[in-house]
């Protein structure tokens, strides 16, 4: 009779850690959704919204988007490598992923610095929106506030991801992972793909439409 005593589990074979990561990502997604929807709400209520094509640097950011997507791709490769017990490949692709994240952050910092220092051209683009001054700051209306809040919150995630992956890299250097034990890499990967996915949303909403 005892064999009938099981627990039905709707989440199949996912490990507990993975389940927790999914939950965390769901909550994180809601936070992003709240911020993005707040931005959309504010945008619908004002006519002083910046023209993304004029104010923001879309080509550069598109390149950044490409970088992040590529780093998601290398993350898949890293996981693939460890599944084949290829530690070298794991380390290679992990470092490429980290590199992608770091470059993304670098470009974002460059972009911010450019906005904060400001220039006449930027000032003109802002003026067309009704904003004053030559530099584009978080105090430049709700447009600026929304831009910085959203992108920096995402940037914080990339930073977290970079640190997270560096820890994983350090651990793989110590030989903690093998083809029989790579759950944590998979979990880290989930986070990284999420950060990537959210960026595509942020990019679309803040930069494209």
């Amino acid at each position: 009779m005892n064999q009938t005593l099981t627990v039905k589990d709707p989440f199949g074979t996912a490990t507990t850690g993975k389940l927790a990561m999914w939950l965390f990502l769901a909550m994180d997604a809601i936070t992003f959704a709240a911020i993005l929807m707040g931005g959309i709400y504010l945008r619908l209520r004002t006519d002083m919204w910046g023209d993304a094509g004029q104010v923001l640097n879309i080509p550069l950011t598109s390149f950044n988007t490409f970088l992040l997507i590529m780093s998601s791709f290398t993350m898949v490769m890293a996981l693939d490598a460890i599944k084949k017990n290829d530690i070298k490949g794991l380390k290679l692709f992990l470092s490429l992923t980290i590199l992608g994240g770091v470059s993304f952050l670098g470009i974002q910092i460059y972009e911010y610095a450019h906005f904060i220092i400001g220039n006449a051209e930027l000032g003109q683009a802002l003026q067309a929106t009704g904003l004053k001054g030559d530099s584009f700051l978080w105090t430049s209306g709700t447009y600026g506030a929304t831009f910085y809040a959203t992108t920096s919150f995402h940037g914080l995630h990339v930073l977290t991801g970079v640190i997270y992956l560096s820890v994983i890299f350090y651990q793989s250097n110590k030989g903690m992972y093998s083809s029989a034990n790579y759950d944590r890499i998979e979990i880290a990967g989930l986070f990284w793909h999420f950060v990537d996915l959210v960026w595509i949303l942020v990019f679309t909403i803040i930069y494209l439409i």
């Binding site: 209520r45 904003l131 709700t142 506030a145 910085y148």
Partner: peptide, 18 residues
């Protein structure tokens, strides 16, 4: 840091939030 998400009317220095 002086953003104005929730300020409107006179208290907002520029473009109003809500």
């Amino acid at each position: 840091i002086g953003t104005e998400f929730f300020l409107a009317g006179r208290l907002a220095s520029g473009d109003p939030g809500d």
